[in-house]
Computed example of a mutant assay.
Amino acid sequence: MSQAMLAKVRKLLAKAEDPACTPEESAAFTAKATELIARYGVDRALLAARDPTTDPVGDRVVEVVAPYARDKAGLLAAVADPLRCRCVRRRHGDGFAMHLFGFASDLERVDLLFTSLLVQAAHGLAAAGVPAGEHPAAFRRSWLAGFAQVVGARLAAAEADAVADSGGPSVALVLADRSDRVQRRVAEVYPRLRTAAPRRLAGTGFGSGAAAGRRADLGGRGVTPAARPARGLTR
């Protein structure tokens, strides 16, 4: 991401995270940061259509560690999919090694967003009260599921708006081709992938997590290395 664009996103997020901000002001700053991130993705895709060397297809591995490793892996997938990246979950110790595939600019966006959202999820969980009599882990898993679902929907909407604002069908075709190329790379590396069975969560935290997802800042603090452990959430 260009330094100028990153600086704008950082300023917006700093304002959105200011405790003195009202929820309405925070939401407005967040919406603008999300818009910039999405517009950047479209701009890089169009540039790469003219010069493929500017944005090659690549991959990286993100280690997602306990506690709640499977839930954090679900959040990563929720971020990656609308940004046209694909991830393969591999068991690694008591966590997962998430193998991400995508164009370099999209992998960068996923890394920015996921790093920020993990911190926000940790703060949200710390502030969410577990109902009396409910198992804390069950509540927190369902909370994270709600958070991830809403974040994914918000990112998909921002991406769709960026495409609509950038020039119509030709842009959509460029992005569809990029998605196809990423999927082919995944198939080359993992020719026998299986779809994971859906989870059944018993906790009651989904609604609270979804509300936190609607408030989440969809931006990041900076670009981190290609492979690093994801930050933990409080058990």
Rank of each mutant, 00 (worst) to 15 (best):
V182M: 12
P198I: 01
H92C: 02
G102I: 06
L144F: 09
P56Q: 04
A160L: 09
G205H: 07
R109Q: 13
A27M: 13
T30N: 15
A176C: 05
V171S: 12
L155W: 07
A121K: 08
L75E: 03
P82Q: 07
E63L: 12
A69I: 06
A7V: 11
L201V: 01
A38T: 04
V223G: 12
V151Y: 02
P19I: 01
E108R: 09
A156D: 07
V65H: 01
A38L: 03
D51G: 11
A127S: 10
A104P: 00
Y68V: 06
A104N: 04
L201I: 04
A14Q: 14
Q149C: 07
V151Q: 02
L47Q: 12
L175Y: 11
L155Y: 08
F114I: 12
V151N: 00
D180K: 15
G58L: 10
A160Y: 03
R214I: 01
A73W: 05
A45S: 14
R194S: 12
K15Q: 14
A49N: 11
R178L: 08
L218N: 05
R109Y: 01
L13T: 15
A211D: 12
G203M: 09
V65T: 14
T115Y: 05
V151A: 03
A227L: 09
V79M: 04
H99S: 13
T195E: 09
L173M: 04
R200M: 01
G102W: 05
F103L: 13
A227G: 04
T204I: 02
A197S: 15
R109E: 09
S105L: 00
F29M: 14
T34S: 15
A69R: 04
K15T: 08
S208T: 14
P198M: 03
K8N: 07
Q120S: 06
A28F: 04
M98V: 14
E188Y: 05
V163G: 07
A132F: 10
P52I: 13
F29E: 12
A38Q: 00
Q183C: 08
G102K: 06
S179T: 01
A156Q: 09
D217G: 15
R214Q: 10
A78T: 04
Y40T: 09
V163M: 13
A216T: 03
T115D: 11
A77N: 11
G219H: 14
L155D: 02
G209D: 13
A197L: 14
M1T: 05
M1H: 09
A210Q: 13
V57F: 07
G205S: 09
